[in-house]
Design a binder for these strands. Structure first.
Lengths: 194, 194
DNA sequence: CAAATCATGTCACGGTGTGACACATTTGAT
DNA sequence: ATCAAATGTGTCACACCGTGACATGATTTG
């Protein structure tokens, strides 16, 4: 509630915004920390005090998203098993994400800037790690199963996102829920039609 | 056939070997290009002429592996569909990999050095890219389906490998084919029991 | 107001990766 | 055997990344 936290929050937003602007304009690798610092009007050192790297500034860890997914108690309400439950949660989270302000910009970058993949992948690894650990920890699944579930969930997320991003670049307006459900559907078909 | 190619090949092996040794001893991040260069007895600049980075030296692109998988003509011999075919090919390739000299060392590193994940992930992205592009290119699958297949295949590979690596570290001697088949089996169960 | 805390800038440093140039070796042709 | 082109290597210079240490000024807390 002090001036400090306020300034700190604002600074984070400013750095993130500047990074996003610059990367959209110049590309990821052509954007240096110096560029970002200059644009915000601070020293390079300070940029590093807020974000560990360009990549972190560009896509700050969506810890809340991961926490939500990991914490989803897998109510077993449906008859679709743990995987089905998690995918359903994912679909809703994905729809939420799309409403986020910068999500579309980042999505476009994901398609247009190959270098972006390393940013996205980093996040995904954290998710897989957290999710599989949670599944094992709760005793719901055994090690290999938990890993598989986490990987498949993440794969579905990525595919849906990727499709969404391509549409975005092509100027096609896609409904996130619909798109995610199509992904889930196709995923199911892979295993039931063969 | 010339002296040059021979020396070049030997140099590549030497650099890779030195990198592996050093990383096992000191860890990935603690191992510098300078260390590697000194150990081989060459300049840092030359190391970069053979490998773009430590990571590349540690796990040179297994292009042949990717090519084999991508080129597997998906004979549709079995009734298990494209996914099943690819997974079967993967199982055999995995068994081959295990026989490779450095595969076990790298596997152990994968578990013990968290920094290794970025090395592995890079390879996997290349595989997904190549595989999905091939599937779409051959007209076998539509975009989303192809992406999903590629992601799932890669996920299975990673899970099987991860399990193998953990066993390796624990001193358990595991049969790669058996392990991969267990992974495939669990994967199938995820979709059929819910 | 005074002390403790915190954010920032500055400086220095080690590591990464690339371009440019000079020098030596290999190669292929005569 | 000899010469010219191609190739590999070392050296140097350079830009960028990321971190530790310290001084300084602002904020907070009492």
């Amino acid at each position: 509630m002090g001036i400090r936290e306020e300034r700190r929050a604002r600074m984070r937003r400013e750095i993130q915004g500047a990074t996003l602007d610059l990367v959209e304009k110049q590309g990821l690798d052509a954007t240096t920390i110096g560029d970002i610092a200059a644009r915000v009007g601070i020293s390079e050192r300070t940029v590093f005090r807020y974000y560990a790297s360009k990549e972190h500034a560009l896509m700050p860890g969506q810890q809340s998203l991961i926490d939500t997914l990991v914490g989803s108690e897998s109510a077993h309400s449906t008859s679709s098993g743990i995987l089905g439950d998690l995918l359903a949660v994912c679909r809703d989270l994905f729809a939420q994400e799309v409403e986020q302000s910068d999500f579309r910009r980042i999505s476009r970058l994901m398609v247009q800037e190959p270098a972006m993949t390393r940013v996205v992948v980093r996040q995904e690894r954290i998710l897989v790690e957290a999710l599989s650990a949670a599944l094992v920890g709760r005793g719901q699944l055994e090690s290999i199963q938990a890993l598989l579930v986490a990987e498949v969930v993440t794969a579905a997320w990525r595919v849906a996102w990727q499709s969404f991003a391509r549409n975005e670049v092509d100027g096609v307006d896609s409904d996130p829920v619909e798109l995610f459900e199509k992904t889930i559907c196709e995923l199911g078909k892979l295993f039931h039609e063969g």
